[in-house]
Simulated scan of single mutants.
Amino acid sequence: MIAIFSDTHSSAGHELEGAALTAAREADVVVHAGDFTSNAALEAFREECNRLFAVHGNADGAGVRDRLPTARVVEAGGVRIAVTHRRDGGETGLAMFGRSRGADLVVFGHSHRPTVVETDDVVLLNPGSHADPRGNRPGFAVLEERADGGLEGEIREPDGTVLESVRLTGD
């Protein structure tokens, strides 16, 4: 299982609770699209996760920015996932970012709005913010490998309520 988070915005820790905390602890891989804000939040995520693949965001302090890249690529379930916090140009810019990395899925953050957008050749997924939703529904995402290849999953609220579904075909 892959658990996906973004926009923690915490000075003290990961702020995970309920189904979000369970997902982080049980996931084989955790992806975080930036804005931990503090080293304490980054370290708290690392303590809860088996494997954390993260990027830094615009609100991350220098200590976090020095430790994390602005973009990265992760492969799981035959799906190539490009991760960034944000890209200029909105959906078009994010799709171009994904295409330039040969990605099937782009995970991004910044808006705090749980979102799935299917473009012609890449799916854009913003898990939202489980801890600081800023007027949006709080969210995180979970993806699981399908028996026939690819991934499927959902954006969920911290209590496990499903907000949106996503399905990705493998190579």
Rank of each mutant, 00 (worst) to 15 (best):
V29N: 02
V29E: 15
H32M: 06
A41F: 05
E43W: 06
F45D: 06
F45H: 04
E47P: 05
E48H: 12
L52G: 11
L52F: 04
F53H: 14
V55M: 05
V55P: 06
A59S: 09
D60Q: 10
G63V: 11
V64A: 01
V64H: 03
R65W: 01
R65H: 00
L68F: 09
L68D: 04
T70G: 11
A71V: 11
A71Q: 15
R72F: 03
A76G: 05
G77E: 01
G78T: 09
G78E: 14
G78K: 05
V79F: 00
R80N: 09
A82D: 11
V83T: 10
T84M: 01
G89K: 05
G89Y: 10
T92I: 11
L94G: 07
A95N: 07
G98L: 01
R99L: 10
S100W: 13
R101F: 06
G102S: 05
F108P: 07
G109H: 00
G109W: 02
H110K: 00
P114Q: 07
T115C: 06
V117C: 08
V117I: 10
T119M: 14
D121E: 15
V123H: 05
L125W: 04
N126M: 01
P127G: 13
G128V: 06
H130K: 04
A131E: 08
A131G: 06
P133I: 09
R134F: 02
N136H: 15
N136Y: 07
R137T: 09
G139N: 07
F140G: 12
A141I: 00
